[in-house]
C-alpha cells in the first residue's frame, strides 16, 4: 500500500465501502529517512542520502491505532494507509482489505515489475552470437 501509486490507492479506497469514523492522531507529516547503503553491497552500512517520507497516525472509534508511512510526499496516501492499518486489526475487515486493496495493488505492482524485467531481458547479451568461427 505504501509503494502503490497514490491515485490508485485512493481509487481502491473509494471502492472499499463505508468505513468507520476515525480520529487523526498525527496529521500527515512530511519528513526524511536516511537511506543506508552497504560498502560493496554487503559490508558496513553508510549513509547514502535521504528520501522524503510522509507519515500519519489514526485511531478508530473502536480504539485500534493505525500508522501509515509512505515514501515521497503523499499526505492523503499516508492517512489512507494508516486507516487501513487500523482496520486490518479488525477481523471483519481483513478479507475486504485483502481482496479489494492489497491483492489488486500486488497484482499491478507485479505487472509493472514484469514489464521492467521483460524489457531488460530483451537487452541481455547473447554470447552465442559472438562465438568464433572455425579457423582456416
Amino acid at each position: 500500500m505504501a509503494k502503490a501509486p497514490t491515485d490508485r490507492l485512493e481509487a481502491l479506497w473509494g471502492e472499499i465501502g463505508s468505513t468507520p469514523t476515525y480520529t487523526v492522531l498525527r496529521r500527515p507529516e512530511i519528513g526524511l529517512v536516511m537511506v543506508k547503503g552497504r560498502i560493496s553491497g554487503s559490508g558496513a552500512p553508510f549513509c547514502a542520502g535521504e528520501m522524503t517520507v510522509t507519515r500519519a497516525a489514526v485511531r478508530l472509534e473502536s480504539g485500534e491505532l493505525g500508522f501509515g508511512y509512505v515514501g515521497g510526499r503523499h499526505p492523503r496516501q499516508a492517512e489512507i494507509v494508516a486507516v487501513l492499518d487500523a482496520l486490518g486489526q479488525r477481523t471483519e475487515w481483513q478479507q475486504a482489505i485483502e481482496d479489494k486493496v492489497v491483492a489488486p495493488l500486488a497484482h499491478e505492482a507485479d505487472a509493472r515489475r514484469q514489464l521492467v524485467k521483460a524489457r531488460a531481458a530483451a537487452t541481455k547479451v547473447d554470447f552465442f552470437t559472438v562465438a568464433r568461427e572455425a579457423g582456416p
Binding site: 519528513g31 536516511m34 543506508k36 547503503g37 531488460a120
Partner: peptide
Amino acid sequence: YRTTLPRFGDSEPLDTTRMVAER
C-alpha cells in the same frame, strides 16, 4: 529544502541483491 524537514530515522541498509535490475 531538506533542512526544513524533520528526520524520522534511518532506513535498514539497502539489499541490492533484491534489485529489479534494468541493467
